[in-house]
Amino acid sequence: MEVRTIKVFTTVDNINLHTQVVDMSMTYGQQFGPTYLDGADVTKIKPHNSHEGKTFYVLPNDDTLRVEAFEYYHTTDPSFLGRYMSALNHTKKWKYPQVNGLTSIKWADNNCYLATALLTLQQIELKFNPPALQDAYYRARAGEAANFCALILAYCNKTVGELGDVRETMSYLFQHANLDSCKRVLNVVCKTCGQQQTTLKGVEAVMYMGTLSYEQFKKGVQIPCTCGKQATKYLVQQESPFVMMSAPPAQYELKHGTFTCASEYTGNYQCGHYKHITSKETLYCIDGALLTKSSEYKGPITDVFYKENSYTTTIK
């Protein structure tokens, strides 16, 4: 009895394709271990004539594949690729409408935090270190965002349907971005203890939790000093293409032309909904596939993004 075979390709990165001759009487799992086709788990399936010449994702289970996976995804987590594939199996079914010149995501599976993050990423200057993220990001900007969303979920250790947080998501993504040249110098002034300067680099240099107003941050924000008295913390120097200011959701007025974009969060910790506000020729609110415009805006804002380049204080 002759062994019926077909020729397929296996890959971990969709760049390096490895030619395989597979036995049609055995499952993919018996031949390769966990195997995925377009995100779908085909591990328990036997090869079919229609699979001839198709590319299958496999887990990096030998040295060659491990090197290829690390170079593309910059992670050695053995569960990463499987999590990416199972997320992709959902995100490829989502709709990605162009809204006001940006790629958004039609609401499904509690994905409003991903839509808000995706919209924000198209408006701030950011370059990702893992080629996987950078490639998928370019495709997302062009309207094909399924891979990018699935990668975000995998890097953030999230599953489809789980509630997510924009600030946490951005923080994970910033860790995989090139923020080497970003720098922030802060000064804390206390009447009792004097003053202390701190220099922050990388992710810490672009994120701040405690106030939404970048102007206020430049002037000074009140913080408790270690001595128990009130101290003032203010920005001395900022070198970065953008800054992200966050605070627990509270009524906040966004003035046209003073910011790049913002995240609105309605609801409580267990259950809520994100919308995205962007400042173009007027203010726009993007909620999944829905767009509304207004000249002014007041609502429960939790993150505001500002364009920056270089700032030095005039406070002496």
Results as ranks from 00 to 15, higher is better:
4 R>L: 12
4 R>P: 12
7 K>G: 10
7 K>N: 11
7 K>H: 09
8 V>M: 14
11 T>W: 07
11 T>Q: 09
12 V>K: 08
14 N>K: 06
15 I>Q: 13
15 I>P: 06
16 N>P: 07
19 T>D: 12
20 Q>G: 09
21 V>I: 15
21 V>R: 12
22 V>W: 03
22 V>G: 07
23 D>G: 10
25 S>Q: 15
25 S>M: 14
25 S>L: 09
26 M>I: 13
27 T>G: 07
28 Y>W: 13
29 G>W: 06
29 G>S: 10
29 G>D: 06
30 Q>V: 12
31 Q>I: 10
31 Q>N: 12
32 F>P: 01
32 F>Y: 11
32 F>V: 11
32 F>E: 10
33 G>H: 04
34 P>F: 12
35 T>Q: 02
36 Y>G: 04
37 L>S: 12
37 L>N: 12
39 G>W: 09
40 A>I: 09
42 V>T: 09
42 V>H: 09
43 T>R: 12
43 T>I: 02
46 K>W: 12
47 P>Y: 02
48 H>L: 13
48 H>D: 14
49 N>L: 14
52 E>P: 06
52 E>N: 10
52 E>I: 12
53 G>Q: 13
53 G>S: 12
55 T>C: 12
56 F>G: 06
56 F>L: 12
56 F>D: 04
56 F>M: 12
58 V>Q: 03
58 V>F: 07
60 P>I: 02
62 D>H: 11
63 D>A: 13
63 D>C: 06
65 L>E: 09
65 L>Q: 12
66 R>H: 13
71 E>Q: 11
71 E>C: 07
71 E>P: 05
72 Y>C: 08
74 H>K: 13
75 T>R: 03
75 T>K: 10
76 T>G: 11
77 D>S: 07
78 P>M: 08
78 P>Q: 10
78 P>V: 02
78 P>Y: 05
78 P>L: 12
79 S>F: 09
80 F>I: 01
81 L>Y: 00
82 G>D: 15
83 R>L: 08
83 R>A: 09
84 Y>C: 13
84 Y>H: 07
84 Y>L: 05
85 M>C: 09
85 M>V: 08
85 M>K: 07
85 M>Q: 09
86 S>P: 05
86 S>D: 14
86 S>G: 10
86 S>V: 13
88 L>N: 02
88 L>S: 04
89 N>P: 09
89 N>M: 11
90 H>Y: 11
91 T>F: 01
91 T>K: 04
92 K>I: 10
94 W>H: 06
94 W>I: 06
95 K>H: 12
97 P>L: 13
97 P>A: 08
98 Q>D: 12
98 Q>H: 08
99 V>N: 00
99 V>W: 13
99 V>E: 13
100 N>Q: 14
101 G>Q: 09
103 T>D: 08
105 I>F: 00
106 K>E: 15
106 K>N: 10
107 W>N: 07
107 W>S: 07
108 A>E: 11
110 N>W: 04
111 N>G: 01
112 C>D: 02
113 Y>Q: 01
113 Y>I: 04
114 L>N: 00
114 L>I: 14
114 L>H: 03
115 A>E: 09
115 A>W: 04
116 T>H: 06
117 A>R: 05
118 L>E: 02
119 L>C: 14
119 L>R: 02
120 T>V: 12
121 L>S: 00
121 L>Q: 09
122 Q>H: 03
122 Q>Y: 08
123 Q>V: 07
125 E>M: 13
126 L>Q: 01
126 L>E: 01
127 K>Y: 11
127 K>F: 10
129 N>M: 09
130 P>G: 09
133 L>T: 02
133 L>P: 00
135 D>F: 05
136 A>D: 04
138 Y>T: 13
138 Y>W: 15
139 R>H: 10
139 R>S: 14
140 A>I: 12
141 R>K: 15
144 E>L: 03
145 A>N: 03
145 A>D: 03
146 A>N: 00
147 N>A: 10
147 N>F: 02
149 C>Y: 02
150 A>G: 05
152 I>R: 00
154 A>F: 03
155 Y>V: 00
156 C>W: 07
156 C>F: 02
156 C>L: 04
157 N>H: 09
157 N>C: 07
160 V>A: 08
161 G>Y: 05
164 G>Q: 06
164 G>V: 09
164 G>S: 03
165 D>T: 02
167 R>G: 04
168 E>Y: 15
168 E>N: 15
168 E>M: 15
170 M>T: 01
170 M>D: 02
173 L>P: 01
174 F>C: 02
175 Q>Y: 07
178 N>W: 05
179 L>K: 00
181 S>C: 11
181 S>E: 12
182 C>A: 08
182 C>D: 14
182 C>F: 08
182 C>V: 11
182 C>Q: 06
184 R>G: 14
185 V>D: 01
186 L>C: 09
189 V>K: 12
190 C>H: 02
191 K>Y: 13
193 C>H: 12
193 C>F: 01
194 G>M: 03
195 Q>F: 07
195 Q>M: 14
196 Q>C: 06
196 Q>H: 14
196 Q>K: 14
196 Q>Y: 13
197 Q>N: 05
197 Q>Y: 07
198 T>K: 14
199 T>S: 07
199 T>N: 08
201 K>F: 14
204 E>A: 12
204 E>P: 11
204 E>G: 09
204 E>R: 09
205 A>Y: 06
205 A>Q: 00
206 V>N: 04
206 V>P: 07
207 M>K: 08
207 M>C: 09
208 Y>D: 04
208 Y>I: 08
209 M>S: 15
210 G>V: 00
212 L>E: 03
213 S>Y: 06
214 Y>K: 05
214 Y>R: 05
215 E>T: 10
215 E>W: 02
216 Q>I: 06
217 F>I: 14
217 F>T: 07
218 K>M: 04
218 K>G: 05
218 K>T: 04
218 K>W: 00
219 K>C: 07
219 K>F: 03
219 K>G: 03
219 K>L: 10
219 K>W: 04
220 G>F: 00
221 V>D: 02
222 Q>R: 12
222 Q>V: 10
223 I>V: 15
223 I>M: 08
224 P>E: 13
224 P>G: 09
225 C>S: 02
225 C>G: 03
225 C>H: 07
228 G>R: 05
228 G>V: 01
228 G>S: 03
229 K>S: 14
230 Q>P: 12
232 T>A: 04
235 L>C: 01
235 L>K: 00
235 L>D: 02
236 V>E: 02
237 Q>R: 12
238 Q>V: 01
239 E>Y: 05
240 S>E: 02
240 S>N: 01
242 F>H: 06
242 F>N: 02
243 V>P: 02
244 M>L: 00
249 P>Y: 07
249 P>K: 02
250 A>G: 13
250 A>F: 06
251 Q>I: 12
251 Q>G: 09
254 L>K: 01
255 K>A: 11
255 K>T: 09
255 K>G: 09
256 H>F: 08
256 H>L: 14
257 G>N: 01
257 G>Q: 09
258 T>Q: 09
259 F>I: 05
259 F>H: 03
261 C>F: 06
261 C>H: 05
261 C>M: 01
263 S>H: 14
264 E>P: 02
264 E>K: 00
265 Y>I: 01
267 G>Y: 15
268 N>K: 06
268 N>M: 10
270 Q>T: 15
272 G>A: 02
272 G>T: 00
275 K>V: 10
275 K>P: 10
276 H>N: 08
276 H>R: 00
278 T>S: 13
278 T>V: 10
278 T>L: 12
278 T>R: 06
279 S>Y: 03
279 S>C: 13
280 K>F: 09
282 T>N: 05
282 T>R: 08
283 L>H: 04
283 L>K: 02
286 I>C: 00
286 I>K: 00
288 G>V: 04
290 L>I: 13
290 L>D: 14
290 L>R: 12
291 L>C: 12
292 T>L: 07
292 T>W: 06
295 S>A: 13
296 E>Y: 11
297 Y>D: 00
297 Y>Q: 03
299 G>M: 02
300 P>V: 11
300 P>F: 14
300 P>T: 14
302 T>I: 10
303 D>F: 02
303 D>H: 07
304 V>Y: 07
304 V>N: 07
305 F>V: 00
305 F>M: 05
306 Y>M: 03
307 K>D: 10
307 K>I: 09
309 N>V: 14
310 S>R: 12
311 Y>D: 06
311 Y>Q: 10
312 T>H: 10
314 T>Q: 15
315 I>V: 15
